[in-house]
Design a protein around this nucleic acid. Sequence first.
DNA 1: TGTTCTGTGTCAAATTTTTGTAAAGGTATT
DNA 2: AATACCTTTACAAAAATTTGACACAGAACA
Lengths: 325, 325
Amino acid sequence: MKEDQANPAQYLISTVSKRSGVKADLIRAWERRYEAVSPSRTEGRQRIYTDQDIARLRLLNQATNNGHSISQIARLSLNELHSLITKDMHTSNQTQPHIRPIRGDKHELLDDYLEKCFSAIIAFEATVLERHCENAIAELGPMSFIEQLLTPLLTKMDESLQAGLLRPAHEHMATSIIRSLAYILRTNRPCSRQAPRMIMSTPTGQLHETGALLAMIIAEFKGWHVTYLGANLPAEEIAAAVKYTHARAVAINISFRNDDSVIIKEIRRLNTLIGKDVTLIAGGRAAVDYQTILDEIGAFRVNNYDHFKLVLDGLRAQTSFQDYA
Amino acid sequence: MKEDQANPAQYLISTVSKRSGVKADLIRAWERRYEAVSPSRTEGRQRIYTDQDIARLRLLNQATNNGHSISQIARLSLNELHSLITKDMHTSNQTQPHIRPIRGDKHELLDDYLEKCFSAIIAFEATVLERHCENAIAELGPMSFIEQLLTPLLTKMDESLQAGLLRPAHEHMATSIIRSLAYILRTNRPCSRQAPRMIMSTPTGQLHETGALLAMIIAEFKGWHVTYLGANLPAEEIAAAVKYTHARAVAINISFRNDDSVIIKEIRRLNTLIGKDVTLIAGGRAAVDYQTILDEIGAFRVNNYDHFKLVLDGLRAQTSFQDYA
DNA sequence: TGTTCTGTGTCAAATTTTTGTAAAGGTATT
DNA sequence: AATACCTTTACAAAAATTTGACACAGAACA
């Protein structure tokens, strides 16, 4: 356990430049003028950067492109940079999901992050896990992070839990961290008034909400106005939320096969309560176990996030004309 | 205690102009003539604005468009501007009542925010609730937000829930929003390696985690390195987390009086598992119901956040020499 | 009615500051 | 030796600053 076990400083400036998108000259200028990063040095005075430095530079790059002055933001923390950029998206009505020119070996990069995150979980290092996730979000972008890093990570966690390699405490810790990242991941865009609305929740007895949370983020990316209700909610409450918000769709996440009779009853009840005009979508690892009931009532069941996106697009297209101002 | 605002983001005039919709020239004129804003300066005299300044200018812009004279409203507080504009919306042709610039009346400000947040909850407007909370955090700072706005709000929500004024769906929605704010509220300071560590969770059967979440944030403010585990965790798991992290204290939150035998058993088990060297702290609305067992095993019970802070300080002082870098 | 005063928004010129880029000459690494 | 880095210095474009002036609408005044 030395100074920074999980973070062996390792990258040279050319690598950092490629991965962050900031030219090497400029990286040095930013360091010299504003101490934007503080890399350590080799014996021969060459700069050595960490993952965090890369994430920083990437965010700084994005923020300056958004019109911020480098001198003013150079010393902000990763966290602060995140919220800064989130706010930018929030205000400047149409900042596109930023370019992610991850050139080179993306696969290796993902594996690297996956390994690092998993190690942090095993070591019960919440702070390290959080930092790695923040870095990954900055480098990969929210979507890739969710689909290509987080999903495999959650799967791996689940397997390890089954295998007894991890304890529930590990999983709780990791889940809390991941959940807290939702704020960064969400593109708090103003969400035009005509955006179709959706309720996202988890039926009674389903306590795990990670899946629902990520699905919410994805739906928001797809332009939906999602009202997120958390986990473990009875059908009447979900239906009430639909009425209040005039939602056009309800998505529920089923991660575990607890007590079939309860879930099936809840689904059936929810279906009758929301009426025919509201689309019901069910996803999650255990949703497949309820295929029959879902078919019977004419609800969608989605297998994965791509499938979910397709269904969402279909719903948007199918209904009244939307303005894509 | 420095003023450690969660919002050190700073903007130059061009950004401010774009975001607020007020031309840069005019912003300067308003400052020169009416001190509408008071930006700080860089070394080279460039103006530096905060988020609040932007909000201010946006409101001033809107108010002037509504016919108000800039010289009359330039010095109103954020909050007063808010109510001015909402009043404009409601009473389209009313003689504007005397809006006294009663700044400094924090009580009124808090009541106003409380009212707005609660209305947003009743109306099931998640987005509005979130925006009000974000504004309040910017204006009040994280600590005041938690202790003076959020705590009363949660109490009020609870009463309304009991009275049938709100449905559980309302509460779930609001809780999700509040939880997502944790990321902003947390002082993600590096947390020096010598910071005392603490495990925060909620025992089996206790599904509400808002209290634990806020307690975590407060403990972090107090310089603790908190590992947050979420809700509904068996004693063995909490104890395992203590072992992994070498935590010096465990805090559990008990919000509801569910099944006494379970909770008492869990507390007792937790106490034996963590050993004598680890301090157990219990808080939450229903913690008082378990006073006897807590006394018996020599655990702390805290009544409120101030009490919690006192206990935390006591623990820090009592143990080995800490660095207050 | 006509004149003046005041409050407001806008513009322009001259000057500074900020910031990305680059060249030159030396050092490390492979 | 070839390539990649480092430091220092310089430079030019973009953005901000200050100062002062101007236009115009309403209010005040004669």
